[in-house]
Design a protein around this nucleic acid. Structure first.
Length: 581
RNA sequence: GCGUUCGUAGCUCAGCUGGAUAGAGCGACGGACUUCGAAUCCGUAGGUCGGGGGUUCGACUCCCUCCGGACGCACCA
């Protein structure tokens, strides 16, 4: 698929070399999309930076290069403006041809990545015997979007759901369910995971006898005691059922095959500790085996360690993360490691990465990235909680989203069948939750507001879904009228049409940016811009009542392509589209 | 104390990794439906981009320094 920026870049590079000499062969022509249509479609901004080097005014430099520039069939015009910008207006015939190519391309012009990566992505990471709550939603949704995008670009993506399935809390949990009369051989339904955990915790704090049993139970679990392990496995299975339902409701791609919990790495911990000790990367300090990556200082000015092995001989999450990283590189041959974990853990991951470099695991060809994100805040600007101060469970959140979306649909489209209302409510409600989480720069906190996220105005899921619905409406009309338009010649008559085509040509580039920065909001901003441009087109350019049959068919081709990009873009964010709403 | 991060219109946020007069939505004001879904569109008002330095032809963007908020800094994850 033809890339306009690349075509322009090559043409300008050649012109620069021919007009200014071979020593300028490596100069970047600085081709950028124009922000203002008055400045053309694209602009070349090389002249200002070259002026000093050449010793001539930038406008003269630009003129010299233009004299050697050949853009036949690409640009309709070029002009020098301002201090030395070269404004380029693309040839309408080129745009028309490119639109035809896009509409014939199943990938909407999106190229697969030049360099193929094996990406191990760590996200969601709920805790066994704890209900999923708003603290997990961002990792789950952002991770899912990143996964979809990287896969679409042709990378191999290994989902690693780092389930919290190990640790001292299992002592009290197992002891508690045992007291409740559980039998490890039977199925149990944990209807309320939160209360189970709370009860166990309360007893642990209040009953010394229970606490003692819980501690012994931890030892039994670690020793592999058969009955204890059976209870433990049962807790995990029941929890997975709960998580699975949430994932299914959210339409997230995580499955039972993606769980690689903390316990998965248990057998690797001792060898990792030994390797680090043998290589001298880890040293004994205050009884614990530690790695001190350079550059991390604590409150007292002393170096901060990663604790590979605790004084009591146990292993904590530093050890688990080190082992997991090593495993993903050495055993899974990952070339890119992605951790979608909240911003407070930034230093932890920086230290893990630094230590892994010291250990020689994380080498130059391999990229490890922490993908941090901010918190969800309530309208009061504080952490998003219920009135009583509890965290909000995802079950409750999802139910409310579905209910609110249903009410909106029922009010606005009473003519839809009950089944369709449900379906649309699901798309809108879940879409709204996801989109609000993805549409802003993830590093920032955001304020949760049902009204804003479910609004049909502005940068929201419903607005985008509605743009798609409107296009579907046009195609229903076209079908009724029996118009045959597939493969029709494209004819661009209005600025709104040109704008849409040029925007759709940028889709591939945007996805490339997202795959590099792992910032899904860039895709959101793009889709929103496209939807917004479509609405402008929709007002200005009638399709079914276009001035000519040829133009009508051309606009149908254009609409179809917009619909495809919207649909594909939203699906890469994990958001559904519907044909009516 | 050290470190990380954020500060852009009254509110909620973009700003394409250094390019032209900083853009949207909400809210305010004013327009546009017998016509593809007005669930929308068009226009007006509103900003010393937290303050101050520096680098550069050119800075919201990079560097330094203050101010303000959030978060993190040894055996919990």
């Amino acid at each position: 698929m033809t890339d306009v920026q690349k075509m322009l870049s090559e043409a300008f590079s050649r012109a620069i070399r021919e007009s200014l000499g071979e020593e300028f062969a490596a100069v970047d022509p600085v081709i950028r999309a124009s922000t203002d249509p008055a400045h053309g479609d694209w602009q070349a901004n090389f002249a200002m930076s070259l002026a000093k080097r050449i010793g001539k005014p930038p406008r003269v430099v630009a003129e010299t290069v233009l004299s050697a520039l050949r853009l036949d069939g690409i640009a309709a015009s070029t002009e020098i403006a301002g201090p030395g910008f070269v404004n380029i207006r693309l040839d309408d015939a080129l745009l028309a041809r490119l639109l035809s190519e896009l509409s014939a391309d199943p990938r909407c012009g999106v190229a697969t990545a030049d360099k193929h990566d094996v990406v191990a992505i760590d996200y969601s990471a709920p805790n066994v015997a704890k209900e999923m709550h708003v603290g997990h939603i961002r990792s789950t949704i952002i991770g899912d979007a990143i996964t979809r995008i990287l896969e679409f670009l042709g990378h191999t993506v290994l989902r690693r759901n780092h389930l919290g399935d190990w640790g001292t809390q299992f002592g009290m949990l197992i002891e508690h369910v045992r007291d409740l009369g559980w039998n490890p051989a039977e199925d149990h339904e944990i209807s309320d995971l939160t209360s189970l955990y709370k009860q166990a915790k309360a007893r642990f704090d209040a009953e010394p006898e229970f606490a003692e049993r819980a501690r012994n139970r931890v030892v039994a679990l670690q020793a592999g005691d058969t009955e204890t392990v059976a209870f433990w496995k049962q807790l995990i299975e029941e929890s997975k059922k709960h998580f699975g339902r949430i994932y299914q409701q959210l339409g997230v791609k995580l499955t039972d095959d993606d769980y690689f919990g903390e316990s998965y790495y248990n057998d690797m911990l001792a060898p990792v500790a030994e390797e680090l000790m043998a290589s001298g990367v880890a040293v004994k300090s205050e009884g614990a085996l530690c790695v001190f990556p350079p550059g991390f200082k604590g409150r007292d000015g002393e170096p901060v360690p990663l604790i590979v092995k605790k004084t009591d001989g146990g292993y904590g999450y530093d050890a688990t993360d080190l082992a997991a990283l090593r495993h993903r590189i050495k055993d899974l041959d990952s070339t890119r490691l992605v951790y979608v974990v909240g911003a407070p853990q930034k230093q932890h991951f920086d230290m893990i990465f630094a230590a892994s470099r010291l250990a020689g695991w994380l080498t130059d060809g391999i990229v490890a990235e922490h993908v941090p994100f901010g918190s969800i805040l309530g309208e009061d600007g504080k952490m998003f909680k219920t009135r009583s101060g509890d965290t909000i469970s995802l079950n409750v959140l999802i139910d409310e989203a579905l209910k609110r979306a249903y009410d909106i649909v029922a009010a606005k489209s009473p003519n839809l069948s009950e089944e369709d209302k449900q379906k649309v409510a699901r798309a809108i409600g879940i879409g709204a939750i996801k989109y609000v989480d993805l549409c802003n720069d993830r590093i920032k906190d955001y304020v949760f507001s049902w009204e804003r996220m479910l609004a049909f105005e502005g940068n929201t899921a419903p607005y985008l879904q509605n743009a798609y619905v409107r296009i579907c409406g046009i195609f229903r009309k076209a079908a009724e009228a029996g118009v045959v338009w597939e493969g029709s010649a494209v004819q661009l008559s209005a600025p709104e049409e040109r704008a849409l085509v040029m925007e759709m040509l940028k889709f591939s580039d945007v996805l490339g940016q997202v795959s590099r920065s792992l910032e899904p909001h860039r895709l959101c901003t793009y889709i929103y811009g496209l939807a917004s441009m479509f609405h402008s087109f929709y007002e200005k350019c009638p399709v079914m009542t276009a001035p000519s049959d040829q133009l009508k068919r051309s606009r149908l081709v254009l609409c179809q392509q917009v619909a495809r990009v919207l649909q594909l873009g939203l699906s890469l964010l994990g958001i559904e589209t519907v044909e009516q709403m």
